[in-house]
Amino acid sequence: MTGFLQRLGATTLGVTERIGRAHLFLLHVLAGFPGLLPRFGLVMKQIYASGVLSLLIIAVSGLFVGMVLALQGYNTLVDFGATESLGVVVSLSLVRELGPVVAALLFAGRAGSALTAEIGLMKATEQLSAMEMMAVNPLHRVVAPRLLGGIIAMPLLAAIFSAVGILGGHFVAVGLLGVDEGAFWSQMQAKVDLYEDIANGVIKSMVFGLVVTWIAVFEGYDAVPTSEGVSRATTRTVVHASLAVLGLDFVLTALMFGDE
């Protein structure tokens, strides 16, 4: 019994300590943001690494998710004779939930794991140490541009995911299932609100971008500097970032869409 209690206590303390360290780490990194302005090339590189390189998987997944949504929605709506609402169903699901969430999950798997591995290996091969000895703060030079790159890339990726998904849904609904084209768009426009739905979706994806990239760079920076340590850290990034996205999605949804 005391053994169990002791382990519980140790775990709790360990987790708390790690969360505290992650926050201090974030503060130090954020302090490096102003210094990035004159050197935006560094951030560009990271937008390329996490944004452009994730583009394909995001666009393809968005397309399929949109198509599936249209197909499933059609099967449900056709019973109520309300198939012209298909555009609303597809677009609201994408813009409010699936766009930000699925894009963030894919981002965690594609870009987040790569970030952790990269920074972890830089630590293991003493590149971060070498920078420190060259009087260059790796938190500012290495981590800050990656965090900012992720924060910029994520909302764009989520928007592309939603837009491609709606086009995919449009293709299935109008092209394959024969839903009226005009009704598809006009119903959508009548029901989807720029502030309530679109802007909130964008805010969600910005938060996800920050959290996923933050977890990824922290795990890399905090990794045990061995090949095993880096591989563990990479796995942790994907698991923790995915859980954080889903948990935060619930909280944000409750905050944004709850008061109606």
Binding site: L121, M122, T125, E126, Q127, S129, A130, M131, E132, M133, M134, A135, V136, R141
Partner: peptide
């Protein structure tokens, strides 16, 4: 540390930069 140079045991070169950029790194920073 700016007045101090250190040669690491395994080199610790920055793997995403070329040889030229590695040597240029402290100058650019």
């Amino acid at each position: 540390r700016q007045r101090m140079g250190m040669l690491f045991q395994n080199g610790a070169l920055l793997t995403d930069l070329s040889v030229f950029e590695n040597v240029a790194f402290p100058l650019r920073e």
